[in-house]
Design a protein around this nucleic acid. Structure first.
Lengths: 157, 157
DNA sequence: ATCTCTGCAAAGGATTTGCATTGCC
DNA sequence: GGCAATGCAAATCCTTTGCAGAGAT
């Protein structure tokens, strides 16, 4: 069994347990959507997910996509991002380690990184306001540096 | 002259210079909006700003509000936040020192704090991806702690 | 058999756009 | 006076809601 199949089996299990525990129905649509999402690398939005599933001849509606993603966020299998545009982006989150984002404001490219110092800040904020933090959103916005580097025996650029 | 008047004079100057430099017109609406925003403490959205100005009998349209706020973001006089809902929130930003937010997901309350360590992370990210970061967004989401504290000779709570 | 979940379509809310008019330069 | 900026309204985009029928329990 591939690592990917292994992950999908595990998230199906998590989702099943979650649905069971909340007395929600285990409909085939919900599992199709979960599996589809876990086969997407990187970020996606509702519309692209919808188109992608329609292309595969799945019978699915946007209402169900929104509804199901809500459930998946509830059981921490999907994360939502608002990068500043008016539409949300999502991302599978099981077994894909916590990370934050850098957005290139010119190209729209998304880069990921993980810096443990954010957890230290989180701890400070929890103490400062006497709160428990469930999650955070950290995004840097900027542009690629233009290199004006001078190199000796320069061959290109 | 009060500190507040002083700030408003300065941001008017910044905005004037910006408009001049870009060959944009210095319309009275733009300065009314700027001044209105700088008299708001904390966050606001387009709708509340619109209502507030209408209540004062200003003749203004939402189209102009959106347009003007775009300009104000361009010259760093206003900051935009997307706290997760589908509508943006804004905030004056001149002379109000850089800060980030904690959102109470139950009450919707917004708390502000400033942690210099975010700049260290920013520097790392700049080096890692070879980019220049113009701004960032850091928001923590969580809830107030419930106190089960035991105190000896407890008087209140 | 019951009642949640579904797809579809309509509604809703925030933001953008089109356009005739206003008024800054 | 020319043309950018305005107000208003319509259009658009994303998301939510209403509802009749399908299907999980």
């Amino acid at each position: 069994m591939s690592e990917q199949e292994n992950i999908i089996e595990k998230v199906r299990k998590i989702f099943t347990d979650y649905l069971q525990h909340h007395d929600f129905r285990k409909t085939p649509e919900r599992f199709m959507i979960l599996e589809e999402i876990y086969n997407i690398d990187g970020h996606f939005d509702i519309d692209s997910l919808y188109t992608q599933m329609k292309d595969k001849k799945f019978r699915v509606s946007k209402a169900t996509l929104y509804n199901t993603i809500e459930l998946l966020m509830d059981c921490n299998l999907v994360t939502k991002h608002q990068f500043g545009q008016n539409h949300a982006q999502f991302e599978r989150s099981y077994k894909f380690k916590q990370h934050d984002h850098f957005i290139d404001v010119v190209t729209g490219d998304v880069f990921e990184y993980c810096d443990p110092r954010i957890m230290e800040i989180q701890k400070s904020v929890e103490d400062m306001f006497d709160v428990d933090i469930a999650y955070h959103s950290l995004t840097f916005y900027g542009t690629k540096r233009r290199h004006k580097r001078k190199r000796i025996n320069q061959n290109n650029n």
